[in-house]
Amino acid sequence: MSLELLLVLASALFCIGIYGALSQQSIVMVMMGLELMLNGVLVAGAAFWAYVSPSRPDGQVLVLVVITAMTVEMAMGFAVVTAIFRARDADLTDQAADLSG
């Protein structure tokens, strides 16, 4: 186990997340992609804490903030999906493309 290996693991998770977020049609599945990307960030944060500056709490706080961000993302995501579903009976990104130019 080394910093490099942990960062490769983090990039692998992050990129699988990118693949999911870009390729999935369902909003819930897109959110799973985002979660997986943040999962990679968790690994990277923990790795930097352990291998770069274990004497300072910054890495740990970063991980804690990312976990919080994940829950916030999830809660808002589900609320938005519910609202969209109620308004338009849709759970797919293609049907909620209001912002697309």
């Binding site: 490099e4 960062l7 692998a12 990129c15």
Partner: peptide, 13 residues
């Protein structure tokens, strides 16, 4: 996109 970014990130790592 995913494979491309993995190559870049892993090379960086």
């Amino acid at each position: 996109v995913a494979v491309g970014s993995f190559v870049v990130l892993a090379a960086g790592a």
